[in-house]
């Protein structure tokens, strides 16, 4: 067990995800690519489930050298990577592949967006997969209005989305959803995507799965300490860049695999699938001013937030026709029709 690896670079990766999640599997494949390309001179040590650094501390820890690489969730990035949180805005796209490509293209094309990363001393390597937002419920809901009065586990901007239809957003860790649902402490949950349900035991306890039309809202990315990256020989940098470029593909593959497994489990448990009507979703979206709030909040802090939002929407519009990827939630829905 005490084998002296002798690698030239030993990189510590901190993640809040579990070792078996689709997100960790992507990073494992990425790390394997790099180790192979560098003949083992660059190795990655994994610290899963927040065992080294909590989710909220991940970015700061990468900056100050407590870790080298970290998974950073957009929900924790408002103070440090403000412009990156544009990807939290709901109702933008239902296609996770488009969403992931947009995250990277903004980094390449938007100065304002990239500056945050440079100021924090981290380099964005690649986004990790996150599916379309779903709502799991213990009793059916045909329209967004049916959510009124229900306590629903939610986080981030999704809390405000369901609040707009009279639901009580309840903040709780994903680990507590199962128990709370069983006991009726909440009557539903969201802010989680279909491929992640099995990890939290939710495929057995969700009677109804609704596609609320929110689409992909939220994301997480893998970042590396910029100074460290730049201190590496060019060949290692190249190995990292190549593996990172491949990781978007790994992302959709791993998400599909996890999504298919989740879908099978849900079907076996007799879960009913439904989706809110487009017209209802449009009304819902119209009642919210989340884009405007986001722009206002960050313009107050001196960002050209409107510019970043416009770029984001523009890129999504360009990417949509290029991708025929279907999110696991859609795929699972489709199977029921």
């Amino acid at each position: 067990a005490c084998s002296d690896s002798g690698a030239e670079y030993t990189l510590h990766y901190a993640t809040y995800s579990s070792p078996t999640s689709d997100q960790s599997k992507v990073v494992q494949r990425w790390a394997a690519d790099i180790e192979e390309a560098t003949n083992g001179e660059v190795e990655v040590i994994f610290h899963y489930s927040g065992s080294l650094i909590g989710a909220e501390d991940a970015l700061q820890a990468t900056l100050d050298g407590r870790v080298d690489i970290a998974q950073v969730g957009s929900i924790y990035a408002a103070s440090d990577l403000s412009m990156y949180t544009v990807v939290d805005l709901p109702f933008k796209t239902k296609n996770p592949e488009v969403h992931m490509h947009s995250i990277m293209r903004l980094y390449e094309e938007s100065e304002t967006y990239r500056e945050d990363f440079e100021r924090q001393g981290v380099k964005l390597m690649y986004p990790l997969p996150l599916g379309s937002m779903m709502i799991g419920l213990s009793s059916p809901a045909a329209t967004p209005e049916d959510l009124e009065g229900r306590s629903i586990r939610a986080g981030g901007l999704t809390s405000q989305v369901i609040l707009a239809r009279g639901a009580n957003p309840v903040a709780m860790g994903a680990n507590d959803i199962y128990e709370s649902l069983e006991r009726g402490i909440v009557q539903g949950y969201t802010s989680i995507s279909l491929p992640n349900l099995p990890a939290f035991g939710l495929t057995r306890s969700t009677d109804y799965v609704v596609d609320p039309g929110i689409g992909v809202a939220g994301s997480s990315i893998v970042v590396i300490n910029q100074d460290l990256y730049e201190s590496m020989p060019e060949e290692y940098q190249q190995a990292i860049d190549e593996a990172s470029a491949n990781s978007l593909q790994y992302g959709t593959e791993e998400m599909d695999a996890a999504g298919a497994a989740a879908c099978t489990e849900l079907r076996e448990a007799g879960t009913e699938f439904s989706a809110f009507e487009d017209a209802d979703v449009e009304d819902w979206r119209g009642d919210l001013a989340l884009d405007q709030d986001w722009v206002t909040e960050f313009e107050e802090r001196g960002y050209d937030a409107q510019g970043v939002l416009d770029d984001f929407e523009q890129i999504i519009a360009e990417e949509e026709p290029l991708s025929d990827y279907s999110a696991p939630l859609n795929a699972c829905m489709g199977g029921s029709q």
């Binding site: 501390d57 700061q60 820890a61 100050d64 050298g65 407590r66």
Partner: peptide
């Protein structure tokens, strides 16, 4: 790691 990392660890 480094002294910086140690101070950050203790302080956070």
């Amino acid at each position: 790691r480094s002294t910086d990392a140690a101070v950050s660890t203790g302080a956070n």
